[in-house]
Simulated scan of single mutants.
Amino acid sequence: MKYTTEIIIESPIDTVIRKLDNPENLKHWQRGLVSAEHISGTPGEFGAKMKLKYKMGKRDMELIETITYRNLPHEFHATYATNSMNNIQENYFKENSEGHTIWTSKSEFIPLNFFMKIMTKLMPKAFKKQSLLYMQDFKNFVENGTSVANA
């Protein structure tokens, strides 16, 4: 399953990237994040891996992020792997004529078991809705300093 989401952040690209590129900020815009632990490579650089743990309602989820391409401030790509799903993310950033940042995210979800294949077929809108929520939360964090850490 593939889709593209886009949001305009009313802030210059250098501010957006500085906040995006700081792992300490993840808790402020990724709902349910419990921990982020660097596990290999140079943090933030190509090939680096980080373990991300989330609590989504009653469900615990663990992802391994692997940075697959980094050309900041314009591009950041990574894969997110779980036992049941792989997610390929390509993130593109550009500044518009007003000095705001356009963030375009291309997502591909690859189910690794029958249940997740069914989920991607029956509920594709839920995946896109979750992606947009993270983007909106990041936008609110950058523009207003609003954190989801205590939500």
Rank of each mutant, 00 (worst) to 15 (best):
K55Q: 15
K55I: 03
M56F: 06
G57N: 01
K58D: 09
K58F: 01
K58E: 04
K58M: 05
R59Q: 12
D60S: 08
D60M: 06
D60V: 00
E62N: 03
E65K: 02
T66E: 15
T66K: 09
R70A: 15
R70N: 10
L72T: 12
L72C: 08
L72G: 08
P73G: 05
H74C: 07
H74Q: 11
E75N: 12
E75Q: 14
E75K: 15
F76K: 02
F76C: 03
F76P: 00
H77Y: 13
H77S: 10
H77Q: 09
A78R: 09
T79E: 11
Y80M: 10
A81H: 09
A81E: 15
T82V: 00
S84F: 05
M85V: 11
N86Y: 03
N87I: 13
I88E: 14
I88Y: 14
Q89M: 13
Q89K: 04
E90M: 14
E90L: 07
E90H: 12
E90Y: 05
N91I: 12
Y92M: 13
F93S: 05
K94Y: 13
K94I: 06
E95L: 06
E95N: 07
E95M: 13
E95W: 02
E95K: 12
N96Q: 12
N96M: 09
E98V: 00
G99H: 10
T101W: 03
I102H: 08
W103Q: 15
W103S: 13
W103Y: 13
T104R: 15
S105F: 02
S107M: 14
E108C: 03
